[in-house]
């Protein structure tokens, strides 16, 4: 997404009108950009640096007494992090969530958008209701689904009991591999609407005359979608994939409210692990190391994907 383009500048000569103009442009740009830059520095850049600094200490977050541990020597937080099986397990879970989120959310979003684009305005009622899940908070969704999936009288268990004719308890949250995939399913339910709208926006950006031209050439709607629309939507799909990828690597709310990473560490994600270490075990130094590690891993993966996507475009 952050593709670097080069802009050509002719360097204005000092004393000319063009030079005065360039100076005043620079000044105006600085004034307009100041609030955003200030906010980002205070609430993102400085905290990131501070997290890296804190990750060198042993600190419980409350007392003034902090003990410097260093960064890479034995006994430091970073050393512990690299050998922490729970963290790498959480990272693995994040990768699973990432892969399945893209595999679920993108196709669902695309199918919904294609249906709405092909059907036009009269299908608006579908769009409205399909968007509802996105309006709900993760805490509310977590509660609702925990309840609906409960083994005593939840929806799934009741449905299974009805089908089999005898009491059948289906425990989608209690047992280890299920819990993570259940949450992935709920995430798809929550986020598919966002990508639906994003793809609708992509579709509406395509010139209407292209469809007309395709129809005149004898193409059906299906052929138009496959041969004309989808190739044109490539950048949109790429951006959506990147968003979903980043989103699932830093995901927190739903898991925290549904399973707290459990049972055991089976549905632990990097973010829930960080939160547990920092605000439940009060190991702020170690929590900072987890957060910083998470930041590094996410940045690396995002860069890697950008590279892969970009090289794919050169043919």
């Amino acid at each position: 997404m952050a593709k670097q383009q080069k802009e050509m500048f002719e360097k204005p000569v000092k004393g000319t009108l063009a030079y005065a103009r360039a100076v005043s442009t620079r000044k105006a740009a600085a004034v307009f950009l100041a609030p955003v830059i200030l906010l980002l520095v205070i609430f993102m850049v400085y905290p990131i640096i501070d997290t890296f600094v804190t990750s060198g200490y042993r600190w419980n977050g409350i007392s003034a007494d902090k003990q410097w541990l260093g960064f890479f020597n034995a006994g430091s937080n970073w050393n512990e992090l690299i050998h922490d099986d729970n963290f790498w397990h959480a990272f693995r879970n994040n990768i699973i969530v990432m892969v399945f989120s893209i595999l679920l959310q993108m196709p669902i979003g695309m199918l919904l958008a294609t249906f709405l684009d092909a059907g036009g305005k009269k299908l608006n009622i579908f769009k409205t209701i399909w968007f509802f899940p996105y309006l709900m908070s993760s805490t509310a969704i977590a509660f609702l689904f925990t309840y609906a999936l409960a083994t005593n009288d939840g929806l799934i268990t009741a449905a299974a009991t009805l089908i089999r004719g005898k009491r059948t308890a289906i425990d989608l949250l209690g047992r280890s591999p299920h819990a993570l995939f259940t949450v992935i399913g709920v995430m798809a339910w929550q986020f598919a609407p966002f990508y639906m709208v994003y793809f609708i926006a992509g579709y509406s950006g395509i010139d209407e005359s292209l469809y007309e031209a395709a129809v005149i050439d004898g193409a059906t709607r299906g052929q138009y979608i496959r041969r004309v629309a989808l190739p044109l939507l490539k950048p949109t799909i790429k951006a959506a994939c990147t968003m979903s990828l980043i989103g699932s690597l830093k995901y927190f709310d739903l898991i925290w409210n549904m399973t707290q990473g459990g049972p055991g560490v089976t549905s632990e994600l990097m973010a829930t692990y960080m939160y547990k270490q920092s605000f439940k075990n009060f190991k702020m130094g170690y929590g900072s190391a987890v957060a910083a590690g998470m930041f590094i891993l996410i940045t690396l993966i995002a860069l890697l994907f950008n590279r892969i996507f970009e090289s794919k475009e050169d043919y």
């Binding site: 955003v36 905290p47 997290t51 830093k250 927190f252």
Partner: peptide
């Protein structure tokens, strides 16, 4: 590009400093 790249910053990396 820099501002857009900040999209990938996880809030957890800022949580402890902002708390402080």
């Amino acid at each position: 590009a820099l501002i857009v790249a900040m999209m990938s910053v996880p809030m957890h990396v800022t949580l402890i400093p902002i708390f402080k």
